[in-house]
Design a protein around this nucleic acid. Structure first.
Lengths: 117, 117
DNA sequence: CAGCATCCGTTGCGATACTG
DNA sequence: CAGTATCGCAACGGATGCTG
């Protein structure tokens, strides 16, 4: 039997939750064009708190989407990179980004119309 | 200048939030193969509460992704359908569903590995 | 530098009860 | 049938301070 996200207890729901997550999308997108250090991610993703960055990275690592590599040096350096699984996701989340940006104006117009009644 | 979800205050963030939302994805997917009544949606999307169904439908309506049509009859009947904008989203969210189901096993294996250390 | 721990207000969301 | 209203808890998520 196929996994079916329409069914309550199917794990695909959890997977959907993660890949749909706001920060996950932005992190995967950032790592799509190259490995990044912790601080680089923090700098590129405007408005993310340290807590959410760490938390989201841990979740992505746990799900096998990113790898975390610690280099024993002073100061410490930690690199994050996409796994094969993570790379298989890039086109999809890039598609979300493209849709969001290209249809932003339409959505905002629709909202204005809706709120005005 | 292009809308950029990497910037804190860009509206594309909000758009991304909506289309990535767990229930939005399932609702759009359900409406993708035909208009549905409120109760049909409730029946097909296992585990959604009345509150979340209504709330998510309102959000999608506000964003111009679905339409809500009330037929004046007894008992009342309300039909939900995708707009053109909503249909432009179907392939994308279907892609999310496919990814989630096809990679579910990999993700669960990765989780088990991660948790076992 | 790359985090972890803690506090704490805000929001999400389910359960339940009621209505046109 | 298709909602709305209210309650209450749990999770989200930011700010701050500390550490190897």
């Amino acid at each position: 039997m196929q996994p079916d996200p329409f069914h309550r207890d199917c794990g695909s729901r959890k997977v959907l939750d993660r890949i749909g997550d706001r920060w996950s999308v932005l992190i995967v997108l950032t790592l799509a064009d190259g490995d990044r250090r912790y601080g680089e991610l923090a700098g590129r993703i405007d408005g993310i708190s340290q807590k959410m960055l760490t938390q989201t990275l841990r979740g992505l690592e746990r799900d096998g989407i990113v790898t975390r590599t610690v280099r024993a040096s002073v100061p410490p350096r930690v690199d994050y990179a996409l796994t094969d699984l993570g790379r298989s996701l890039v086109d999809l989340v890039a598609g979300l980004e493209v849709w969001a940006t290209t249809h932003l104006a339409e959505v905002e117009a629709a909202r204005a119309r809706y709120d005005a009644r």
